[in-house]
Nucleic acid binder design. Structure first.
Lengths: 126, 126
DNA sequence: TTCGTTGCAAACATTTTGCAGTTTC
DNA sequence: GAAACTGCAAAATGTTTGCAACGAA
């Protein structure tokens, strides 16, 4: 992690991500914070998302319609993506899945650092 | 599936995807076929990838460094993505994973159509 | 002859970046 | 005061699209 000062806007981005379970995109975050931070720029949102991600504070959980979607809950869980409306829903699966996945042997991999399991379909609001 | 004529270039794209296990990007396909099809255009590659995908002939298996990666082997398997070099490796996991995943209950989903499990890390060539 | 397919280039959308000014420590 | 952070706008990137010509049936 590179040295880092306190930043009011980074804090706001992180807290917004913590407060929602909608797994927002950069644009959604920008529009949500803009009323409270009128001088916020989209570039700052992108820069801070990258920074928070490299810190391990947040994760990119999916790319929906070409937009990266983020989550501040970094506990092991998975996601369901609605192909119609783009909604991203948390999936807290049974213990056995991480166990089995962790034991999966992968020919050609030196080190497996993480995995991402995404379900696709249509949600109950569509 | 919408009505469709025979197309020599679409055929070539599909056969190229069948013949490799590198899970290529549109650009890689374009550059590979360009010598044999000098008048091939990148737009045609993109159009045919979308078409083949909507036909179910191929699948998008991952987005690596912002590039969609495709696979013509549509049997149930998973992938490992090297975060350093971008290599995508097939992962043929044990029977139990699909079983358990198929049984996962997802609150908020009406219908689960598919899932995608991607591992990340570094490969043995990096 | 009809309609799917293509090359080409322009358009598009998301994300990144250079720079000069501001904030944090 | 040094270094991190930011707004702004321009650039970069991967992908899509309009159109006129071409090819398949």
């Amino acid at each position: 992690m590179r040295t880092q000062n306190y930043s009011r806007k980074r804090q706001a981005i992180y807290e917004l991500l913590l407060s929602t379970d909608t797994h927002p995109s950069a644009d959604w975050i920008y529009n949500s914070l803009k009323p409270k931070y009128p001088d916020l720029s989209l570039g700052t949102v992108y820069r801070n998302l990258k920074l928070l991600e490299s810190n391990g504070a947040i994760k990119s959980v999916a790319v929906v319609d070409g937009c990266e979607r983020y989550d501040a809950r970094i506990s092991k869980h998975s996601h369901f993506v609605c192909k119609k409306c783009g909604r991203v829903i948390d999936v807290f699966f049974t213990e056995s899945i991480p166990d089995i996945i962790d034991k999966t042997y992968i020919d050609g991999a030196r080190e497996v650092e993480s995995y991402n399991l995404i379900f696709y379909g249509s949600c109950d609001k569509c």
